[in-house]
């Protein structure tokens, strides 16, 4: 009995190690570029078809109507979360949405895709967080932006101890945004593939049980793109909020609010 338990553990650990090694390799550079090219081809193709239906009257073409709906959705996201000044971020959010959502779809259909690769997702996260920092510095100035990380203004004795700690924590927090954004997307998309592969084994190679997860994975594609863009908009709103837009800073007495 003990032998059976030990051998089962051994087999399981080998499988996990193999899966880990396989996952750890991910796509090659050329492979990732290929899937990015496929994603871009789909995005550009969709946009090119949609562009032919543009006019100043009424969009009759379904793809143009779909693009308009996407624009309205992203505009709503920007205006509702960031504020009226958030409209200027629509191009960036549209690009991010199209890249991530289409990347998710490519990964869903081809069983491998850019968003199933952590390097791609980290690039998206670095772009998002870097853009947020850039906009924060543009909105508040370099010193003003970094003073957000120092927390509230404190008496000198407390500030000497607490402000550096808050500053370090905030910097770590900002850095971790990259990790959270990229790992969340990677985990969901890559995890979905792993779940399909694992469940397909239940069918003994005859019944593709895992493929029944397709609707959930499709939902995941939408939700993950939405979460990424939503968080990006929230990060932007935190660093670019305007005092004249009705935000109440109440007891901060004119002190810079923390970044989040």
């Amino acid at each position: 009995m003990e032998f059976l338990v030990n051998s089962t553990w051994l087999m399981a650990s080998e499988e996990v190690a193999e899966a880990g090694a396989e996952a750890a390799h991910g796509l090659s550079f050329a492979g990732l570029m290929f899937y990015i090219a496929v994603t871009l081809l789909v995005v550009v193709g969709f946009l090119a078809v949609a562009k032919t239906g543009l006019n100043t009257r009424f969009f009759k073409k379904p793809t143009t109507q779909l693009l308009e709906q996407l624009y309205v959705f992203i505009e709503g996201l920007c205006v509702n979360i960031i504020g009226p000044h958030g409209r200027k971020y629509i191009p960036m959010l549209l690009t991010l949405w199209l890249m991530i959502f289409t990347g998710n779809l490519v990964a869903l259909i081809l069983h491998a895709g850019p968003t199933a690769d952590l390097s791609f997702n980290l690039a998206m996260a670095l772009i998002a967080v870097g853009y947020v920092q850039y906009e924060g510095m543009r909105a508040n100035g370099v010193l003003g932006h970094f003073s957000h990380f120092a927390g509230p203004r404190l008496p000198i004795a407390m500030a000497l101890i607490i402000t550096p700690m808050i500053f370090i924590i905030e910097i770590i927090s900002e850095t971790m945004k990259n990790v959270s954004l990229s790992l969340r997307l990677y985990g969901n998309i890559h995890g979905g593939h792993e779940a399909v592969v694992a469940m397909n084994k239940l069918g003994g190679g005859w019944v593709p049980v895992g493929d029944f997860l397709f609707p959930i994975k499709l939902l995941t594609c939408v939700v993950q793109a939405l979460i990424f863009c939503l968080l990006f908009a929230v990060y932007l709103s935190l660093v670019t909020h305007h005092h004249d837009e009705g935000h109440d800073h109440g007891n901060d007495e004119g002190h810079a609010a923390p970044a989040h």
Partner: peptide, 16 residues
């Protein structure tokens, strides 16, 4: 178990 490659990330940023 973290399949991260810096080259791919930088290239992806460039493409974006």
């Amino acid at each position: 178990g973290i399949p991260l490659e810096i080259g791919k990330t930088i290239a992806t940023i460039g493409v974006f």
